[in-house]
Simulated assay, not measured.
Amino acid sequence: MKDQRGFTIIELMLSIAVLAVILMIATPNIDKWLDNTRIRNAAAALQDGLQRARTEAVNRNQNVSFYLVSQASPGALDNNCALSSTSAGWVVSVNSPVSKCADSPSTTTSPMIVLGRPSGDSGGGVRVSAKRSDGTTDATTVTFNGFGRVVNTGDAISWIEVNGPLSTATYRKLRVTVAAAGATRVCDPDAATGSPRRC
C-alpha cells in the first residue's frame, strides 16, 4: 500500500469554506481599521503643517500662514487650488497661495510658499471640517506672527475635525486644535470625560 500525501477534495473544500467565513467576518473590521488609520494620518499631517507655519513665523520673524486648499487631484497640489474649509490639503506660505499652490518654495517670489501637502499624501478619503472659535463658522486660514501667536484671531482656524469617509459609519474622529498662543494639539472629542485625550 502506498503512502498517500496531500488533501482530499473534501478537506480542501472545507478549508476554503472556513477561510471564506473568517474573511467575511474580518473584512468590515479591516475596512474600519484602515479608515481610522487614515484619520490619524490626516490629523498628524495637519498638525505638522500648523507647527511648520508657526516655526517658520518665529524663524523668519514675520507672519506666516497655514492655508487649507482644495485641489483637482488628491495626489498633487495644482494651480487651480482654492481655499477650502473641507480639504485635508494644505499650504504654508507668507501670502495667499490661491491659484499658485503648485509654485516652488521661495523666500522672495509671492506667495512665498514654505511647504505644501496634498490631501492624498496623508489620509485620502477622509472628511475634514475646519471651524473658527465659535464652532460653527467655517475657516480656511490661521496666521502666526514672529512670536508664534495667532494674529488673525477673529477668523482663524480654531480647530479642524477629521472624520471617516462615510457619514453613515461611526469612526474614531480626531480634532486638531489651535490655541490663541499658537500651540497645536490632536485630541479626541469623544474620549471619556477626564481623559487627557479629550478635547
Rank of each mutant, 00 (worst) to 15 (best):
residue 59 N to M: 14
residue 107 T to Y: 10
residue 55 T to G: 09
residue 68 L to C: 08
residue 31 D to G: 06
residue 101 C to E: 05
residue 36 N to T: 04
residue 33 W to K: 10
residue 85 S to D: 10
residue 104 S to Y: 05
residue 47 Q to M: 05
residue 111 P to H: 01
residue 52 R to C: 14
residue 24 M to R: 14
residue 92 V to Y: 01
residue 83 L to Y: 12
residue 53 A to G: 14
residue 112 M to P: 08
residue 62 Q to H: 12
residue 28 P to L: 10
residue 53 A to H: 11
residue 69 V to F: 05
residue 31 D to M: 15
residue 86 T to K: 12
residue 46 L to M: 09
residue 110 S to E: 03
residue 108 T to V: 13
residue 95 N to C: 06
residue 82 A to I: 08
residue 44 A to H: 11
residue 27 T to A: 12
residue 104 S to P: 05
residue 88 A to C: 13
residue 42 A to L: 07
residue 89 G to K: 06
residue 42 A to I: 02
residue 95 N to I: 03
residue 64 V to W: 09
residue 44 A to R: 15
residue 46 L to W: 00
residue 64 V to I: 11
residue 60 R to P: 03
residue 82 A to C: 06
residue 35 D to Q: 15
residue 50 L to K: 00
residue 90 W to D: 05
residue 57 A to F: 01
residue 85 S to L: 08
residue 99 S to L: 15
residue 70 S to K: 03
residue 44 A to Y: 05
residue 39 I to T: 00
residue 96 S to M: 04
residue 65 S to M: 10
residue 76 A to P: 03
residue 85 S to P: 07
residue 106 S to I: 15
residue 107 T to K: 13
residue 82 A to W: 06
residue 107 T to W: 11
residue 101 C to F: 02
residue 72 A to E: 06
residue 81 C to G: 03
residue 103 D to T: 11
